[in-house]
């Protein structure tokens, strides 16, 4: 996968977060949404290029072209339209082929009145808007990334499973370089690859559906009656391992029968995260 980091700033944290939430809306799955995206961290004014409160957002796609397309759409429709915001690249210096022209494409909205500013090798575009001006960087960095790290939390009942998943999300959220793209960080409708219907690329994960226990080859122990999935996208294997570890540690309490992970026959990607191995090694966690 490929990923980019946006730093969205605004007059206050509320507006920065509003823009970030809208930008990362409808971005739970690359298959159906075009990208997976989420809020990575809330940034203090000292951490942002313009000294205002900010939010960093990670966006993941399967390839570079899709990432550029998604960023242009999302920054153009969700950040530029949001009051007082500005948008900066959060990945820093990358090679020329790993730059995506985002502000350079959005500038045309200025209808010829856009203003270019170049500071220390970075080009910014000032696009006149009704409120004042929208400041956006010409290009954004892109890097290789990993999507689809996941935890399956198998609970004895729905309340216990949800509480465990919430604890895992709370533990993972402070970590940098990872996002949880699903609503509130939790997916209740985990999927399997393929379907009996030819037109569908994914369908409900029957092996983990308690209500299908008697009809399919189930992966659920007898005591399990509800399952939640936490999907983790990260900029590195280390970041995902760290997130999985703290998630498991937080989730493993009474009411949880098992914590597992979907490996989809090992065909989901080149990275395999073995839970026992993750829990057996010390991993440095970078918190925000």
């Amino acid at each position: 996968m490929r990923a980019a980091r946006l730093i969205i700033t605004a007059v206050n944290e509320q507006w920065a977060m509003t823009a970030a939430q809208v930008t990362t809306g409808f971005a739970t799955s690359v298959i159906a949404c075009g990208c997976e995206a989420g809020v990575e961290a809330v940034l203090a004014p000292e951490e942002t290029p313009d000294g205002r409160p900010g939010v960093s957002v990670l966006v993941f796609t399967m390839g570079p072209k899709g990432l550029e397309d998604q960023l242009i759409r999302r920054v153009g429709q969700c950040v530029m339209t949001c009051p007082t915001t500005a948008c900066f690249d959060g990945l820093g210096e990358t090679t020329r082929e790993n730059r995506l022209k985002i502000g350079g494409a959005l500038r045309y909205f200025g209808n010829g009145f856009q203003i270019s500013k170049k500071l220390e090798g970075k080009r910014y575009w000032r696009i006149p808007v009704m409120e004042g001006e929208f400041l956006v960087e010409e290009s954004f960095g892109m890097q290789k990334a990993i999507g689809g790290g996941n935890l399956l939390i198998l609970g004895q009942d729905n309340a216990a499973a949800l509480a465990a998943a919430e604890r895992a999300v709370d533990a993972i959220r402070p970590l940098r370089d990872v996002i949880l793209p699903f609503p509130g960080g939790i997916a209740r409708s985990g999927s399997q690859v393929g379907s009996k219907y030819k037109f569908l690329r994914a369908s409900t994960n029957v092996a983990y559906c308690p209500m299908l226990r008697a009809q399919v080859e189930t992966a659920l122990p007898e005591s399990v009656n509800s399952v939640y999935e936490i999907v983790i996208d990260g900029l590195s294997e280390t970041a995902i391992r760290a997130a999985m570890r703290v998630g498991i540690e937080a989730a493993a309490q009474a009411g949880v029968a098992r914590i597992s992970a979907g490996n989809y026959g090992g065909t989901l990607g080149q990275f395999h995260f073995h839970l026992r191995e993750i829990m057996g090694t010390q991993i440095h966690t970078d918190t925000r």
Binding site: P49, D50, G51, R52, A86, K117, L119, E120, Y124, R126, G132, E133, F134, L135
Partner: peptide, 15 residues
């Protein structure tokens, strides 16, 4: 033209 805050000035003046 107008009197308003200019976002790019924030970036420039900080640098």
């Amino acid at each position: 033209a107008c009197t308003s805050q200019v976002t790019f000035m924030r970036v420039y003046l900080r640098r």
